[in-house]
Design a protein around this nucleic acid. Structure first.
Lengths: 199, 199
DNA sequence: AGTGTTACGTTGAGGTCTAAATATAGGCCT
DNA sequence: AGGCCTATATTTAGACCTCAACGTAACACT
């Protein structure tokens, strides 16, 4: 069994050395693409250079924002709801459906967000908007105040996270991302929200 | 009450016209920045052109991938786990901690992912790796097969979603995203996973 | 050799989301 | 005028994640 233990150590060293590539590159886009190529020659890796950083940036930004907001006693979902209403301007009221469209979440998620925010006194719900069964969600003074107290902080933090790029790089990146986003929205239907009412 | 009904219709029209901006721009980065500027002059909106598209792209890509994988009977989290193991090369085994580092999720999430995958017979767990209390997670033949059967499909779909950009644009975008990601990782500590063992 | 420290992994509580099923308000057509 | 139809909102079930607390194994130091 003493020899077995030695073997165990060797195994550990082997995976510690990552078998092939360096650990530092194992989670970078380049490292992932190289690993697929090595393990499965011919794997279509062309998208990885874009998809992986986009995913990882969204994750890092989202986690960071959650921690920043935790200190302010809000969660990102609630602030998103309040911000949409605040941005819409007086009288700070939108239908559930419209909120869903602007927040990029399903109608069910909006219902839950509104229910939570309503319970905290940040918004109110009222029947009677336009179409069939519209519900108008309105910002309360408390909700309005909460946005005012946190939005600058959040956006300033976001700007800080982008200072690694020069203004020129930021401008180029903004343009490319906007082009890609518009195309992807078209490609995915754009009326993606349609599946909500359709089931 | 008939007049009340008319008033209701006016209200609906008002919010349908978005009070100020066109509906089409209400959820674009430009529309959001313009709305903040209009509602709260001086709001630091410089980051929105990048943060919003990154977030929205990640959301659209993630939702699309979930639907593609649902047809194959897997979820994205499980496939992520299996892919990390598959890419690591023979003997297709890594410690829980290493998996967490490469997947960008907490150790708790890895534990849960592994438990689910183990229950489906896609991976196995075994004590005895290198350090203190290491657990080696290994790919089973079934897990290996599942990766082989789905990864090309997923990556091909990803590539398809990026065809709206020219190869040159894709190359520029890849470079900028990589630069930004590296910087953000440094800025956020990089040892972000440290909080897992630290509590 | 014994004890404290540190590194890992797992568990549990709480929160959020999607997708599907459910309920209902107006409109349309005959 | 009455019954089908469609657009909305809500509810429910199932998944997943983070954070914090916990249990435990190896190592170092005395």
């Amino acid at each position: 069994m003493a020899r077995g233990e030695d073997a165990r150590t060797e195994e550990a060293d082997a995976h510690s050395a990552d078998t092939h590539a360096s650990e530092a590159e194992a989670h970078s886009a380049q490292g992932i693409a190289a690993a697929w190529e090595r393990e499965r020659p011919g794997t279509p890796v062309s998208s990885i250079g874009i998809m992986t950083p986009v995913w990882q940036l969204a994750k890092l930004f989202g986690d960071d924002r959650r921690r920043v907001l935790a200190r302010a006693g809000v969660d990102a979902a609630t602030l998103d709801l309040l911000s949409v209403l605040r941005r819409s301007g007086p009288p700070y009221a939108l239908s559930t459906r419209e909120i869903g469209r602007r927040s990029l979440v399903t109608a069910g998620a909006v219902s839950q967000r509104v229910a939570r925010a309503e319970q905290e006194g940040l918004v109110t719900r009222a029947r009677g908007g336009g179409r069939p069964r519209t519900v108008l969600v309105s910002l309360t003074p408390a909700g309005h105040d909460l946005v005012e107290a946190t939005v600058d902080q959040v956006l300033h933090r976001d700007a800080e996270l982008l200072t690694g790029l020069t203004p020129e790089q930021q401008a180029t990146l903004t343009e490319l991302l906007q082009t890609l986003l518009t195309d992807v929205q078209d490609r995915l239907g754009d009326d993606w929200i349609g599946h909500v009412g359709q089931g």
